[in-house]
Every structure is written in C-alpha cells, then in structure tokens.
Design a protein around this nucleic acid. Structure first.
Lengths: 233, 233
DNA sequence: CCTGACTATATTGTCGACACTTTGGTTGGC
DNA sequence: GCCAACCAAAGTGTCGACAATATAGTCAGG
C-alpha cells in the first residue's frame, strides 16, 4: 500500500528539470518572490536554457511562478490572503471530490481507506507522532482519486497540492501531531462508506474550513508554532 | 460596459500562436482527437516549431490537448462523461465563486450586474433572441471575478471556460434562446445583492446542475437541437 | 504462412546562436 | 539642478539544426 502518489515520473529531461525546479521552489531553496533568471538557472542546473524555459512555463501554469513578457518570471509571493484563497478553492473542489467519492469509490477502495485510517489511528494513539503531512496528504489524495473525475484530480494534484505544500513548508506548519483532524477523517470515511454524498461533502468542507481557520489563527498569533494541535488538512 | 472578458491580449508571437491554435481547436477547425504534428502546424501557421511547441504545452496545461512523451499531442476527445465531469467542477468552483461574490462584490459591481441583467431581460422579452452564449458567459464571468479570488478566476477563465465552450460549439449547443436560465440568473443576483452567501452558492450550484441535466438530456435525445429551451449556464 | 529482429523514416526532444525588448545609467540641453 | 533623449548591457523571445526516440515496413528464419 504505497503512497501511490508520486507516480509522476520524469521521462524526458525537461520533466526532470521541471520537477527539480518545482521541488526547490516548494522546499524554499529558491525563495518566494525571487527572480528566476533563465540564463542563471541554465548554468546552475547545467541544462540548456530551453529546458529551463519550458520548466518555467509549466510552473506558471501551476501558479507557482508569475511571468511578465520580456521581463522575466518570479516565484509567487506567499500572502495570508493568498493562502485563504487557496483553501477556499480546496474547500470547493475537495468537497465535491468527497461527494463524488461517496458515489463512485468501490467497496475495495473504501476498505483500503479504512485500513489507512486504522494505521493512522495506531500512530496517533501510541503517540508515535508520525501522523503528519505524508499521511494527511495520502488520505486526501485517495478521496480525490476516488472521485474518478479527471479534471478534479488533475487540478488538485498538479496544481493546488504543490502550492499548499509550499505554504506549509515555508510557513513552518509541517509535521505536526494531529488528533482532532484524525476524527474528522474518520467521520468523512464513515459518510463515504454510507454512500451519503451530501454528508461527505459537508464534512470535507468543514474539515478544510477548520484547517484554514487554524492556520489563520496561527498566522495571527505565531507564538508557539510547535505545540499547536491542528494544522493539516 | 464591454465584455471585459477577452482582456487577454497577445504581446508575444508565442501568445498569438497559442490563441490562434486554441481558437481553431475550440471552434472545431481542428477536430477532437486529431493529432497535432509540430512540423505540420509549423508550416501551416508559418511560425517556427518552437512556438508551436510552446503553444501545445500551454494547451496541455488547459487540458485541451493530451501529450505523450516522444509520441506527440492529440486534441482531447469529447465524451459525455467528460462533459459531466467538467460541469461537476464548474458546480463546485462557481458555487464557491457565487458565495465569495456575495461577500466581496462592491455595491457598484452588483449594480452593474443588475444593469446587465436588465439588458438581457429586454432581449429575452422582446424575443430578439440575442441572449445567447456571450451574454451568459458575461454574467458568469462577472460573478467569478466578483469572488476576488485569484485562483478561482484563473482556473475558470484560463482553463474550464474554453473547454466548456469547446463542448458547446462542437456539440451544437451554442446560441440558443433562454428563458428559465434568465430567471435563475435573477435569483442569483438577488441573493448576492442580499449578501446571502449560502443562498448564492446554492442557487448557482442548482443553476449549473440544471444546465448539466439539460445537456445530458439533449445528448441522449438529439432530436430537435434548435428548438430546445435551455442549455447555457 | 507466421514471427521476430532489423532498418529506414518521420517525429519529437534538445541545443546554441541570433534578434528584439527592457532597464539603468549617462550625457547633453534647458 | 532637473528633465529628456540616448546608449549600453543584460535578459528574454525566436529560430534553425542536430540528436534521440518511436513507428512502420522489410527481410530472414522457423
């Protein structure tokens, strides 16, 4: 039962360049707001400028960089309102994903999801504190895929997800212990298991809304970022 | 009070190529499922292959074409389930847009929206039958912009909209007379005017759902496509 | 006659060079 | 001393050519 997630594998050199550049931006190696000089990156990554250029084009499509014609590209700035907007989109899309998952997931997939949840429960209850970003992402990703909606899947995993991760990493909200979020996950799976589309969507939307509120609160009071109780979604 | 929509203007030659190629695909000049040979298009459009290549990359980001490495790109196929999936995404995103518009649109913007609606009403009541795709798109676009959410706006107007238009054009559902949809538009604006976020979202979602149902029905019974009463959203 | 490997061709992937635009600084005039 | 026009440097936009890969057709072997 692997993460089944980073299935996107680079076949061409342009792919590799794109993935590496995206990782370096998301991880903060290249700072938000930084200018992306094609010539400079070309020498730094030891590839032709054309590949850098294509990578930047793809990053622009993901809204990770912004480009102005004849001027250049910059990494997007991370603003609180940008984060809020991102979570509003997530609320809409993942809410719909949960609704569709309740309709279209197979019983086997739901069983797998329950198994995953039990795994997470062990980690949470034993306080092994290993329930963190990876597990949370895995959970959400399965529901997204469970929607069986190509557009939804593409938008979230190609576009939104990396931006969310960028915010998490750079605002220092990764790798937390979560207890309340886990219960919310349980209830969502329960609704999906009951094929209750309406409830599944409602609960997913709440779940993401709560996360957003938590993050907003944390941004407003950046007092004890390591002791907070919930921030993943 | 212009359409304010096709504000995206080509500054570079790559932009022009991209716009033209996209238009030719959306309008059906290039058929769904057709292969996009870079060399062939290069001679046909009289630009370098690099520009064609960049245009195809952008079209891939919009999900208008699909590309396989070392093989080539094809225009996406138009399937009923693809259309349904598209409208599910619209329902989620535009529902959220209506909710946010109820919160963030200025009174002036709402007044403008009402004026637009009155304009449409005249056209509908006089049976000048000019209330068609353009007006409908304008209405939806204003609400999307009214959400003031960058991600939402970008996703819908750069990505979803052109796909929807492609379906409309190619399945022969463009340019119809609409009466019931107009009333739905009225109610949505009323909710936004009352700053009723919940209702605005609900009504928008219903509006899009109805449209989807109408189109599904039409796809199942392609009997009198020119006399149908509603198909825009 | 069928199957499998090989070759030839066409198409995509990648690259380095040239052309154009922007930008910041400099010079000349008022 | 200030403003405008000009100039130079750096960076992006565009192009044609070369390299690598897939596809289809051919030929040899069974």
């Amino acid at each position: 039962m692997p993460m089944s997630f980073f299935t996107e594998q680079a076949v061409t050199a342009a792919d590799k360049t794109f993935f590496q550049l995206r990782r370096d931006i998301v991880e903060g190696v290249i700072a938000p707001g930084a200018k992306l000089s094609e010539t400079e990156l070309s020498t730094k990554y030891e590839v032709s400028r054309a590949l850098i250029r294509e990578a930047i084009n793809r990053l622009e499509a993901c809204h990770i960089v912004e480009r102005k014609a004849n001027v250049g590209a910059r990494v997007v700035a991370l603003t609180p309102q940008g984060m809020i907007g991102l979570y509003q989109v997530r609320e809409a899309l993942e809410g719909m994903a949960a609704r569709l998952a309740a309709k279209h997931m197979t019983d086997a997939e739901i069983a797998d999801l329950n198994a995953l949840l039990n795994l997470h429960y062990q980690e949470v209850s034993h306080d092994e504190s290993y329930y963190q970003e990876a597990g949370d992402v895995d959970f959400h990703y399965r529901i997204i895929v469970g929607s069986k909606n190509r557009h939804l899947i593409a938008m979230l995993s190609d576009g939104i997800y990396h931006l969310v991760r960028m915010y998490r990493v750079q605002l220092g909200m990764a790798g937390p212990r979560v207890t309340t979020a886990f219960n919310e996950h349980r209830h969502i799976v329960q609704a999906i298991s009951n094929r209750d589309e309406e409830l599944a969507e409602l609960l997913m939307r709440r779940h993401i809304l709560y996360s957003r509120n938590s993050i907003e609160h944390k941004l407003a009071n950046p007092s004890h970022p390591l002791t907070d109780k919930r921030e993943t979604a």
